[in-house]
Amino acid sequence: MRADDVQQVAENTLLPVVVAAASLVTMVMTLALCSLCQWCHRRDSYTELERDDETSEKGGAFPHSNVISRKTIKFERPPGKALVRGNVQPNADGDEDSAENGTSLKAYEDEGSDSNEDAVSEPSANLGRIQFSMSYDFDTMTLVLHIKRAVELPAKDFSGTSDPFVKICLLPDKKNKMETKVKRRNLNPHWNETFQFEGFPYDKLQHRVLYLQVFDYDRFSRNDPIGEVHLPLCEVDLTESPTFWKDLRPCPNSNDNLGELLVSLCYQPTAQRITIVVMKARHLKAMDITGTSDPYVKIWLVYREKKIEKKKTSCKKRCLNPVFNESFIFDIPMDKMKETSFIISVMDKDTLKKNDVIGKVCLAPRSGPLETKHWKEMISKPRQPVAMWHGLKK
Results as ranks from 00 to 15, higher is better:
Asn192Trp: 08
Glu193Thr: 03
Glu193Asp: 06
Thr194His: 03
Thr194Lys: 13
Gln196Ser: 15
Phe197Ala: 12
Phe197Glu: 09
Pro201Asn: 09
Leu205Arg: 04
Arg208Leu: 12
Val209Asp: 09
Val209Ile: 15
Tyr211Ala: 11
Tyr211Ser: 09
Leu212Met: 08
Gln213His: 09
Val214Ala: 08
Asp216His: 04
Tyr217Val: 02
Tyr217Ser: 10
Asp218Tyr: 14
Phe220Tyr: 14
Arg222Asp: 14
Arg222Thr: 15
Pro225Trp: 01
Gly227Phe: 00
Gly227Ser: 04
Glu228Pro: 01
Glu228Gln: 13
Val229Glu: 02
Leu231Pro: 02
Leu231Ile: 09
Pro232Phe: 01
Leu233Ile: 03
Cys234Glu: 13
Cys234Gly: 08
Glu235Met: 11
Glu235Arg: 12
Val236Gly: 06
Asp237Tyr: 07
Leu238Lys: 04
Glu240Gln: 15
Glu240Met: 13
Ser241Leu: 01
Pro242Arg: 09
Pro242His: 06
Thr243Glu: 15
Thr243Val: 06
Phe244Glu: 10
Trp245Glu: 13
Lys246Trp: 04
Lys246Ser: 14
Lys246Asn: 10
Asp247Tyr: 10
Pro250Arg: 04
Pro250His: 05
Cys251Ile: 05
Pro252Cys: 02
Pro252Ala: 09
Pro252Leu: 07
Asn255Gln: 13
Asp256Tyr: 04
Asp256Ser: 13
Asn257Lys: 14
Asn257Trp: 10
Leu258Glu: 07
Leu258Ser: 13
Gly259Asn: 14
Glu260Pro: 01
Glu260Ala: 14
Leu261Ser: 11
Ser264Asn: 08
Ser264Ile: 03
Leu265Ser: 02
Cys266Asp: 04
Cys266Leu: 07
Tyr267Met: 03
Tyr267Cys: 06
Gln268Cys: 01
Thr270Trp: 00
Thr270Cys: 00
Thr270Tyr: 06
Ala271Ser: 07
Ala271Asp: 10
Ala271Thr: 01
Gln272Gly: 00
Arg273Asn: 10
Ile274Pro: 00
Ile274Val: 12
Thr275Met: 02
Thr275Glu: 10
Ile276Tyr: 00
Val277Gln: 07
Val277Arg: 07
Lys280Pro: 00
Lys280Gln: 12
Ala281Pro: 09
Ala281Leu: 04
Ala281Ser: 15
Arg282Lys: 15
His283Ile: 10
His283Cys: 12
Leu284Glu: 09
Leu284Phe: 03
Leu284Ile: 06
Lys285Ile: 04
Lys285Ser: 11
Ala286Arg: 08
Thr290Pro: 03
Thr290Ser: 14
Gly291Lys: 05
Asp294Ile: 02
Asp294Phe: 05
Asp294Ala: 09
Asp294Trp: 12
Asp294Val: 09
Pro295Glu: 08
Tyr296Ile: 03
Val297Thr: 11
Leu301Gly: 03
Leu301Gln: 13
Val302Trp: 03
Tyr303Leu: 10
Arg304Ile: 10
Arg304Val: 06
Glu305Lys: 14
Lys306Arg: 14
Lys306His: 14
Lys306Trp: 06
Lys306Pro: 01
Ile308Arg: 08
Ile308Asp: 00
Glu309Leu: 12
Lys311Phe: 02
Thr313Met: 02
Thr313Leu: 02
Ser314Asn: 03
Ser314Ile: 01
Cys315Lys: 06
Cys315Val: 12
